[in-house]
Amino acid sequence: MTTLFYIAAVVAVLATILVITRSNLVHALLYLVVSLFAVAVVFYTLGAPFVAALEVIVYAGAIMMVFVFAVMLLNVSADSPLRVPPSAWIGPLVLVAVLLAELIYGIGLSNHALQAGEVGPQQVSEALFGPYVLGVELASMLLLAALIGARHIAAQPEGPALEDPQLSGEEPDARADEGGEA
């Protein structure tokens, strides 16, 4: 299990690095999917199979799909012309090196072992519908708000990028009428 953990960790890190360095946008997103898969494996090795599944289903499945859809919608060219000169990486690299050093120093290398045994879906569910039920309700409200908000923000009177009327929220009545007549 520990070996699996380290392998998955390495995969995750490498994939993430590739995400941020790819110029091709779709490639970057796909590498992100790989990274998320690797993190799901990490979850499994930590004895959290429920969130491992969730990670795959929601994160890698839904969220990344939304990304891909948006990319297709925006007609972003495959090769993003927005290159950043190599010298622009220096500052951020220095900054994050400092940050990473601090974090690692803060975390310490004490080699505490984790408790053996997994925390299965049952326990998680009990916690969700027990003490955290309020949080669940709030999360669903958040999602509702995001849904409505996204629909309104993305909708526009006219817009060259939206060629497929099916995806715009603008003419459900027209569609319905058209569908009714035809």
Binding site: M1, T2, F5, Y6, A9, V42, T45, L46, G47, L103, I104, I107, G108, L109, S110, N111, H112, A113, L114, Q115, A116, G117, E118
Partner: peptide, 11 residues
């Protein structure tokens, strides 16, 4: 499952 180190996870 053998235990994975806490610190390594956090790192």
């Amino acid at each position: 499952m053998a235990a994975v180190s806490l610190d390594h996870g956090l790192i």
